[in-house]
C-alpha cells in the first residue's frame, strides 16, 4: 500500500468514527425540529417532515428557559469574575513576593487540590444557609468561585514569576503604588493567563450541576439551564421535541464560545497539563 493510499484510508476511518462521535448532536438538533410523535416514531430518519421552530418558542417562553438562561449567564459571569480577580491577586503575590505563611498557604493549596465537589456540598450548603445566601445568585456564585480553583492561582503565580523585576522598579520610580502597579501593569501583561482562566472557569460554571441543584431546590426562580432541564424532564416527560429544543438552547452558548475561542481552548488545556 502506498503512503498516499494509507493516509486516505486513515482519513476515511477517522471520518466514520467522527461521524459516530457527533451523531448525538445531529440527532438532537433534528429531534428539536420534529414533532414529538416523530422523534421516536420515524426510526432513524434524521430529516424532520417539516421544521417545527415552535418547539424552541415553547421551551424558551412557556417552560421558562429564558429565565434559566439569564440565571446561568449571571452565575457564570459572576463566578468567572470572582475567580479571575481572586486568583490574579493571590497569584501575583505568590509568584513575586515573599511573606510570612507563604509555604503554609501553598501546602494547603496542594493538599486540597483535588477535592471533588460531592465531598463538601453539605457544609457549603449549611454555610450558605447561615449567611442567608441560600436561594440567591450571590450564594451560588460564592459557592462556585470563592473556594477551589487552585489551578488558576498557580497559573497566575507561574506566569508572574517569570516577568522581569525591572517592571515594578520602573513603575515604582514613577511613583506608582503596588495596587496601581498590579492593575495598570501586571494584570494587563498577564492576559494570556486571564484568557485561559476565563475559558476553564466559564466551562466549569456553565456546566456545573450539583451545587446549583442543591442551592435552588426550594426556589424555581433561580434555576440554571442544567437544573431547569432536569425539572423539565420530570414535569413534561413526553414533550420530547420541546426537551430537545431546550437542550439545544442550553448547549449552544458554550459551543459558540468554544467555536470562537477554539485555538485558545486547546492551548489552555494543553498548557495546563504541561505545568
Amino acid at each position: 500500500m502506498t503512503r498516499r493510499r494509507r493516509s486516505w484510508l486513515t482519513g476515511i476511518v477517522l471520518a466514520v468514527v467522527a461521524a459516530v462521535w457527533v451523531y448525538p448532536f445531529v440527532w438532537l438538533v433534528s429531534a428539536s425540529l420534529k414533532s414529538s410523535s416523530e422523534v421516536f416514531g420515524k426510526g432513524l430518519d434524521l430529516v424532520p417532515a417539516d421544521l417545527r421552530w415552535e418547539n424552541y418558542a415553547r421551551a424558551w417562553t412557556d417552560v421558562g428557559f429564558a429565565s434559566y438562561m439569564i440565571n446561568t449567564v449571571v452565575i457564570t459571569l459572576g463566578t468567572v469574575f470572582l475567580v479571575i480577580v481572586r486568583s490574579a491577586l493571590a497569584g501575583y503575590v505568590l509568584g513575586r513576593h515573599d511573606f510570612a505563611g507563604k509555604k503554609a498557604l501553598i501546602g494547603i493549596f496542594l493538599l486540597t487540590f483535588f477535592i471533588p465537589e460531592g465531598y463538601t456540598i453539605i457544609p457549603i450548603t449549611q454555610l450558605t444557609d447561615q449567611l442567608h445566601l441560600l436561594n440567591t445568585h450571590v450564594g451560588v456564585i460564592l459557592g462556585l468561585g470563592a473556594g477551589g480553583h487552585v489551578a488558576a492561582t498557580l497559573l497566575y503565580a507561574g506566569y508572574f514569576r517569570k516577568l522581569p523585576k525591572e517592571l515594578e522598579e520602573c513603575a515604582e520610580l514613577d511613583g506608582a503604588g503596588p495596587i496601581t502597579i498590579f492593575f495598570r501593569v501586571m494584570l494587563p501583561l498577564a492576559w494570556p493567563i486571564t484568557a485561559t482562566v476565563f475559558i476553564l472557569t466559564f466551562l466549569f460554571a456553565w456546566n456545573v450541576y450539583l451545587l446549583p441543584l442543591v442551592f435552588t431546590l426550594s426556589d424555581p426562580d433561580l434555576r440554571t439551564l442544567a437544573v431547569g432541564m432536569t425539572v423539565f424532564v420530570g414535569e413534561q416527560s413526553t414533550d420530547w421535541s420541546g426537551l430537545a429544543a431546550a437542550a439545544v438552547i442550553s448547549l449552544v452558548p458554550a459551543v459558540a464560545v468554544f467555536a470562537v475561542l477554539q485555538r485558545r481552548f486547546v492551548d489552555s488545556i494543553a498548557g495546563a497539563v504541561k505545568q
Partner: peptide, 8 residues
C-alpha cells in the same frame, strides 16, 4: 462533547 453540560 467536552464543552457540553454533563447534566444535559
Amino acid at each position: 462533547p467536552v464543552v457540553t453540560t454533563g447534566a444535559i
